[in-house]
């Protein structure tokens, strides 16, 4: 029997490996999909699912993304989209954290909420969804609330953490822990037609600066609610920040905040 490497090389066409070839290798070699994917990328063979990433993400980039872990804290309006985008982009390891189950009122915006997932744990739904999108991605679900005490477990090996929470107090706690642990944090929050995104690097206290006048745990969302287009837009920007941090490409929102007003369509960049 050929080795896995020989099998993949033999079945590749113009250095592209199809999903069916990967699935066949998983069956014949009794290996996890993740091993088959990493072996292919390591041989500079591109899984066909990434073809349309074009020249924007090179094969070396895909391998780098595949070997990275991202911790998505909060799996609701923002987190659901972020998990979806990162799995499609080929982030190899996702830790997803949320204590809640889906309820009717999530369905206006939360990607992973469907009539069929009502009552289901949000992180469990995320794991199922990722498996259907990209079985090479390993999801570590944690059906618990983020706390400083649990942070060592929840942020273990995370290259980047994503703040997709819904309370200002917990966001600040996450930001403190990330600063201490040296983990870059991509913050996003929404309320009505408005949203904001920033990226805090180790040693910085961007979120503390941003929320220093906030007295309560909630912002404008308490009255304005949360809308699907605001959630998906902010989640998309957060996901792009994550990819840039991992690949060390482009410019991030480090030291500045992007404030988005979708009602008057204004994007304001603020130096913090």
């Amino acid at each position: 029997m050929k080795s896995l490497k020989e099998f993949l090389a033999a079945h590749a066409r113009n250095t592209i490996v199809s999903y069916s070839t990967q699935a066949k290798a998983v069956r014949e070699y009794r290996l996890p999909f993740s091993v088959v994917e990493e072996t292919a990328l390591d041989l500079n063979l591109l899984p066909a699912r990434y073809l349309r990433n074009g020249e924007s993400l090179s094969r070396a980039d895909q391998l780098c993304l595949f070997r990275s872990r991202v911790a998505v804290i909060g799996c609701g309006g923002l987190g659901g989209y972020i998990v979806e985008i990162l799995a499609r982009a080929g982030i190899g390891h996702l830790t997803v954290v949320d204590p809640d189950v889906f309820d009717d009122h999530n369905m206006n915006r939360q990607l992973l909420s469907e009539t069929a997932t009502l009552g289901m744990s949000k992180v469990e739904a995320a794991a199922h969804r990722v498996k259907r999108i990209n079985p090479a991605v390993t999801v570590t679900p944690a059906k618990i609330a983020f706390t400083k005490e649990k942070s060592a477990q929840l942020l273990r090996n995370a290259r980047v953490a994503v703040d997709a929470l819904d309370s200002i107090g917990t966001r600040l706690e996450l930001a403190d822990v990330c600063r201490e642990k040296g983990i870059p944090l991509v913050h996003g929050s929404i309320g009505g037609w408005y949203g904001q995104v920033t990226t805090q690097f180790p040693g910085e206290n961007t979120l503390q600066k941003m929320y220093r006048h906030s007295s309560g745990d909630r912002g404008v969302e308490e009255k304005l609610g949360n809308l699907s287009f605001t959630a998906s837009l902010v989640a998309g920007i957060q996901a792009a920040e994550v990819i840039k941090i991992i690949l060390n490409q482009g410019n991030t929102l480090r030291g500045r905040m992007l404030f988005i007003d979708l009602l008057d369509l204004e994007f304001v960049n603020l130096a913090l």
């Binding site: 966001r171 404008v220 969302e221």
Partner: peptide, 8 residues
């Protein structure tokens, strides 16, 4: 002036 935004 910007209001606090904290939803997810």
């Amino acid at each position: 002036l910007f209001p606090p935004v904290g939803g997810g």
